Computed example of a mutant assay.
Amino acid sequence: MSSVPLPPSARLSAAVVLRVSLVGLRGRPLRAALSALGIAIGVAAMVAVLGVGAASRQQLLDQIRTLGTDMLTVHPGQSLFGENARLPVESVGMVARVPSVRSVTAVGAVENGTVRRTDKIPEADTGGISVAATRLNLLTTLGGSVRSGVFLNSATEMYPATVLGSVAAGRLGVGQPGAQVYLAGHWFTVIGVLDSLPLNPEIDRSALVGWPVAEGLLGFDGHPTTLYERSDEEAVTAVREVLASAVNPRDPEEVQVSRPSDALTAQLAAASTFNSLFLGLGAVALLVGGVGVANTMVISVLERRQEIGLRRALGANRGQIRLQFLAESVVLSLLGGLSGVLLGVLVTLGYAASRGWPLVLPVQALAGGVVASTLIGAVAGLYPARRAARLTPTQALATG
């Protein structure tokens, strides 16, 4: 008696494969949700790290672009014998003669100068606020602005008037001009409060007074302690090389020259390093989630032997069984990945908004989260799918 060959198995369309895989997941919703949660946590961590890092990086880049990289600062260093050096009194005029220098200004620290709200507060309680004599073009050179009141001018610089940096005003409890503060043993009237200067935090913590009143009333010796210089962008390197010699031709080694924007650039590099670290932790979490998916699929194969045997008996071939379980694993991981991307986006937007950063969502991170979860699902489901496909109908039904 001749045997009649069985007809070839029908090809499963993508819609049928998707529907079958969803039926398998709906049969064990809690286990599927817990497995997808591992993938979601890993993807969310990676998206949040990349998203927050991108927002932080953009904020720093915007700040650098706004504040500029064309400013150099000059400080006194130390002499050959280890003593504190001093900048020459005429150093501002000497720097102004350097080619490509657009503007230069200076401040000078008033030694033993303290600022208190009243003379009843102990002198030792300084609040970290210093007193500095300033040139009138300080804000122009630094690119600063006055939050309230006015800055010093040619008239007020000769009288006991002061302008407070943003931090100094906060610590003294002064928000508006007109208040009196006890400055270096004298009463001064606050005529202005400055906005914050991110590149010059020392100004934020200072009470600024005019150069003439500092010399005549506060015992200031006229030697600047910090010079601020701005030059053409393309000439910053060349100016930096000659600035020390221009400030102090006799002892240029006693002069320190720096660029404040370098601190922001270093902060940008440090942020990138930490992003790489946290990204690695997110990848570990994603790997753990993949192991969870693999474990779930292995258990699913063991529990669904009867279903596998029945499908094989009805004509499903090994490839269709393998595709079914592989699709379940991929769909499970993909759902976890999409949930993780959504969670990561919400975390990024919330954190950026709370810090006042620009809202930046790197498309690569969003697409990468979905692709990574899909690949994890494919790899995690490969072994369970092959194991299910190896079962013969008689083996599966006998142990079902």
Rank of each mutant, 00 (worst) to 15 (best):
S166H: 05
V181S: 01
G219W: 06
T162P: 11
G143W: 15
R135Q: 12
L183M: 14
L87K: 02
V89Y: 06
Y182K: 02
V190W: 03
G222W: 01
T162W: 04
G149E: 07
V131L: 01
G144E: 09
V174R: 01
A96S: 12
S100T: 08
S103I: 02
S206H: 05
V95P: 03
R117S: 11
A161K: 12
V167T: 15
T134P: 08
V146E: 09
G178Q: 12
M158V: 13
S91P: 00
S166K: 03
L152P: 11
G128I: 10
D204L: 03
G149L: 02
R116N: 12
G143H: 15
S166C: 03
R171D: 02
A184V: 09
I191V: 15
H186M: 09
A214F: 09
V150I: 14
N153T: 14
G93D: 03
Q180C: 02
A132W: 05
A161Y: 13
D221M: 13
V101T: 05
V163R: 10
V193T: 01
L194Y: 04
P212Q: 12
L197R: 03
G113D: 07
L152T: 06
V110M: 00
A207N: 04
V213D: 09
T105V: 00
L136Q: 15
G165T: 10
A169E: 02
R102Q: 05
A133Q: 04
V107H: 00
G144K: 08
Y159E: 14
G143K: 12
L139T: 11
S91D: 08
G192S: 09
E90Q: 10
G173E: 06
A133L: 04
R147N: 05
S103Y: 05
F188N: 00
I121H: 08
G144W: 07
V163S: 09
T162A: 15
A169L: 08
A124C: 06
S145A: 06
W187A: 15
V150W: 03
